[in-house]
Amino acid sequence: MIEVENITRRYKSSGRGIEGVSFAVGSGEVFGLMGPNGSGKSTLLRVLSTAMAPDGGTFRVDGADGLREKRKARAAMGLMVDRPTHYGDLSGWANAYLFARAYGMEEKEANAALAELFDYFGLAEYRDDRVKTYSYGMGKKLGLIEAMAHAPRALILDEPSLGLDYSSQLAYEAKVRELASNGVAVLLASNQVDEVEALCDRVAFLHRGRLVETGTPEELISSIKGIRRIEATLRNPVDYASLGDVAGVEHVTTEGCKLVLQCEDRAGIVADVVAGIVGAGGDITDLAVRRPSLEDVYVKLTGEALRDAEG
């Protein structure tokens, strides 16, 4: 179980950070943490991973005080940072073995757990290759193995699926569900909406250092009835500022060559949006009208997009 009470941490240089963040992740629960760059997500994870002391507040990991019993808290925790680093001149197995032993596993126990996880994540074939020859996705999988091998009671994962191929992502999601069903408390920081909606029992939104909403994905999504999400894929980039003037359009963002619009659910809105895009010179190659997602909830609550976006 992870209990977070009133955690505050401000950076003197920028004044940014987190303010009075409280939540709890129960045993067997997968708890999602969402927020754009600068929302305080990384700061919160740094505090919870014991890398950084908070200015105020407390937290406990599996009963261990994260400030006074750091090593006990660390032992109970599996941790994957967003960009896992490894010793490039050692093999993947050697890296994972070093971490497994650092977490107190015995030789036999470590070998058995690692063999199973290397096999599960499809790295068995590459276990003796030097990590510097690994792809980014393989490095991420190795990071997951290192986080999970010692059977932690709490798992803290920062953008774990970023860079994973589709089958690896499915495997990772299944493994997280399996661990949760065995009682592990999982804190998952991710802005991958599909992943969070599929995996998380509850989700919290961070905005400018504060928790602005917490709930199950269903609760949060159903709280914004009356919103439509229109996704238009364009052949060419357009200046879409004028779309904000279309009646009922609340927010416009881009995701690659896609325009994503959060709109009121009113009659004729799709036609008006299409007309607006065409009027701006856009050549639509694909158009989808979807039910709202957690991203739309975030936009509705904060007026800002979850991912890097303009508009």
Binding site: A51, R71, K72
Partner: peptide, 14 residues
């Protein structure tokens, strides 16, 4: 600089 030592420091090792 790599961040690997920080990661090691977040294990229960003293």
């Amino acid at each position: 600089n790599d961040g690997i030592l920080m990661r090691v420091a977040l294990t229960p090792l003293s």
